[in-house]
C-alpha cells in the first residue's frame, strides 16, 4: 500500500484545466481514484454522459491522460464490459502482450442508480474484471438539478420542488451500495472525497481483486446542494460524521466498517447547511419531518452496525 507521500508524487492521470465548477467534488474523486493505481499499470476509462464527461472532454481538449471512451448516459458498464471482453480475448489469442491493464468506469448517480442500473447490474453479474466508480452528488446536475433515486428525501430539486404542500422529494434514497453488495462480487465499498486515505485504500483493493468491484463515492455538488464552494470537502465529511454516508466495505460478502465517527453528529445540522433543505427550516423549522429524517438515518446506521457486528 502506497503512503500519502508516495501517492502525492505520482504523476496525474487526470489533469487540471477541465471545466468543472469551482468546488465540484467529481474531479477530486476522479483524481484520487486515478492516483491510487500503480503508475506502471495502464488504465482504460469509460465515462458515462454527465457533468464529468462534459467538463473534462470538451473537444479537442481532454483532462484524461490514458485511453478513454465516452458512451451514452446509461451504458458505461456495458461499454467497459465490451472493452474488457475484447482485451481478454485478444490476450488469450496472443495478439496483444500479456501484461496487466486495468479498467475503470465512472458514472454519476443519475447514470448509475437510474438509467445505468441495468447495464451496471449486468456487468457485475457477468463478472468482468473492472472497477465501477459512482460519484454520487444526489441529482442530475448536468441537466439542471433534477431529482434522481440518489436524492435524499426532503431535498428540493427542479423536478421535486418544495412548495407549500410538498416538502421536496417525498421518497428516501435508494441504497445502491447495498444493492451492489447483493451481487456477491469480490469488492464493494462506500467512500467519500473527505476521507482520502480511506478512499485510496478502497480503490487499491478494488483494482487488486480479480473480477468486478464497485465503489460509491460521496461527491457533493455545490449547485445542487446550495453550499459554498470552499465547503465541499467539509460537507462531505459531515455526511460521514452524521452517519448519513457511512464508510464501509464488503469484501467477498463480509461487511466491515472502515471508519466509525467518534461522536455521531446531527443529520439535521448537516441538512441545515444546504439550501436544498432550506424549506425544512424556514420560515419555521418543520420539526416533524426533520425528526423523521434524522430517525431514518439513525435506523439505517443501527442496521449497518448490527450487520457489521454479526459478521465480525
Amino acid at each position: 500500500m502506497a503512503t500519502l507521500k508516495e501517492l502525492a508524487q505520482r504523476p496525474d492521470r487526470f489533469t487540471g484545466g477541465h471545466r468543472a465548477c469551482a468546488g465540484c467534488a467529481a474531479p477530486i474523486a476522479v483524481r484520487q481514484v486515478m492516483a491510487a493505481l500503480d503508475p506502471e499499470i495502464p488504465v482504460v476509462t469509460a465515462n458515462a454522459t454527465g457533468c464529468l464527461e462534459v467538463t473534462t472532454t470538451i473537444y479537442p481538449f481532454t483532462a484524461w491522460k490514458g485511453s478513454y471512451i465516452h458512451c451514452a448516459f446509461g451504458n458505461a458498464a456495458a461499454t467497459l464490459s465490451g472493452v474488457e471482453s475484447a482485451y481478454q480475448s485478444l490476450k488469450r489469442q496472443g495478439k496483444i502482450p500479456d501484461r496487466p491493464i486495468k479498467f475503470v468506469a465512472f458514472g454519476g448517480d443519475g447514470g448509475t442508480y437510474d438509467i445505468g442500473f441495468q447495464s451496471l447490474s449486468g456487468a457485475m453479474e457477468r463478472g468482468h474484471d473492472l472497477v465501477y466508480i459512482c460519484y454520487d452528488n444526489g441529482a442530475y446536475a448536468n441537466t439542471g438539478i433534477q431529482r434522481s433515486s440518489a436524492t435524499p428525501r426532503g431535498a428540493s430539486t427542479t423536478t421535486s420542488p418544495a412548495g407549500k404542500v410538498i416538502a421536496g422529494k417525498p421518497q428516501p434514497r435508494k441504497d445502491l451500495t447495498a444493492i451492489m453488495a447483493a451481487h456477491n462480487i469480490p469488492y464493494v465499498a462506500q467512500a467519500s472525497v473527505s476521507h482520502y486515505m480511506d478512499l485510496f485504500r478502497k480503490v487499491e483493493k478494488a483494482f487488486a481483486v480479480e473480477g468486478p468491484a464497485f465503489i460509491n463515492i460521496m461527491a457533493p455538488c455545490r449547485l445542487t446542494w446550495g453550499t459554498p464552494p470552499e465547503e465541499t470537502v467539509d460537507i462531505a465529511r459531515e455526511a460521514v460524521e452524521s452517519c448519513f454516508w457511512p464508510l464501509y466495505e464488503v469484501v467477498d460478502g463480509v461487511w466491515k466498517l472502515t471508519y466509525k465517527p467518534r461522536q455521531k453528529t446531527s443529520f439535521i445540522d448537516w441538512m441545515k447547511r444546504q439550501a436544498r433543505f432550506r424549506h425544512l427550516f424556514k420560515p419555521e423549522p418543520k420539526t416533524e419531518i426533520l425528526e423523521e429524517l434524522q430517525a431514518e438515518v439513525d435506523k439505517r446506521w443501527e442496521q449497518l452496525l448490527a450487520r457489521v457486528e454479526t459478521e465480525k
Partner: peptide, 16 residues
C-alpha cells in the same frame, strides 16, 4: 419525464 437538454424546462414546469 426524464432530464435531457434542451427540454428540461418542460418536465420541471410540469413537476411544479
Amino acid at each position: 419525464g426524464y432530464p435531457i437538454t434542451p427540454q428540461n424546462e418542460l418536465p420541471e414546469y410540469m413537476a411544479r
